[in-house]
Amino acid sequence: MHTSEIQMAFDDVFDQALVFHGFTDYMRDYDVFIYAIADPRTGIAPQNLRYRFTHCVRATVTSVLSPEIWKRSLDDRLLDHKLADDLEGYVWAVRWQALYPGMRLVTPSADAERWSADLDIPFHEAVIATNGHIVSLVFSDLTVNAVSPGDTPFVVSAD
């Protein structure tokens, strides 16, 4: 996928829900699962999407929560909606993070340029920023697919 197509794919899911991310079971590619929903008035059905970052040579995940918020968010009851109601802290039980400010390509990227030169194929660097984490990836290509609930480690439904 060309750089402009990658950025368009990123823009398509701006401010949607990141529901799961991590290396594939074979540990080469990195998957980002997104629950995308349009304004209900459009009649467009929600979709579960898989963004697969192929040949991922670097994946770094960093929390954006401050130490103060982390300190208030250590209680395991924040993992369960029923138990988290009266607690202060980051409610992990929501099981998704807003893709805001979203995904963007880093250009220029010294890491991507080095990998491109070493492997003689294009590499890119992406930053995925949410309200809970920042994910930084160096990868060769991107594929985007709609996936069914059985094809994902975690899927959000409209129910």
Score class of each variant (00 low, 15 high):
A17F: 13
H21T: 05
D25N: 12
D31I: 08
L49M: 01
I37F: 10
F23S: 10
A17P: 06
F20Y: 15
D15S: 11
V13K: 02
F33G: 05
A9P: 06
Q16S: 15
G22A: 06
A9V: 01
Q16P: 14
D31L: 08
F14N: 10
Y51R: 00
P40M: 04
D29L: 00
D39K: 08
G43V: 10
L49Q: 02
H21W: 12
Y26A: 09
I37L: 10
M27K: 12
D15Y: 11
A45N: 13
F23R: 14
N48K: 09
M27I: 09
G22C: 06
V19L: 09
V32I: 05
A38I: 03
Q47Y: 04
Y35E: 02
D15W: 11
L49P: 01
R41I: 14
F10C: 06
D29F: 02
V13Y: 00
D29G: 04
T24Y: 12
T42E: 08
F33Y: 15
V13P: 03
F20W: 15
H21D: 14
Y51D: 00
I34K: 00
A36P: 04
P46D: 03
T24C: 15
Y35A: 07
T24L: 12
A45T: 09
D11N: 15
D15R: 11
M27E: 13
T42V: 04
A38C: 05
T42P: 01
A36N: 05
R41Q: 14
I34N: 00
D25K: 13
Y35Q: 05
F33W: 11
D12Y: 15
Q16H: 15
R50Y: 01
Y26N: 12
D15F: 09
A17G: 11
R41G: 07
P46W: 03
D29K: 03
F23K: 13
F20P: 10
L49H: 01
H21Q: 15
D39Q: 09
A17W: 11
V13H: 00
Q16V: 11
V19K: 08
L18I: 10
F14A: 08
A9E: 07
A38D: 09
D29S: 01
T24K: 14
F23G: 09
V13S: 03
R41N: 11
R28Y: 08
R50K: 06
F33K: 00
R41A: 15
Y26V: 07
D31M: 10
V19T: 13
V32T: 00
R28E: 09
P46Y: 02
I34M: 03
R41H: 10
Q16R: 12
G43R: 10
M27F: 14
F33N: 04
V32G: 02
D11F: 10
H21G: 01
D11W: 11
Q47D: 10
G43A: 08
I37P: 06
D39H: 12
Y35N: 05
V13W: 01
G22N: 08
D12N: 15
F10A: 05
I44Y: 06
D11A: 15
Q47M: 07
V13M: 02
A36E: 07
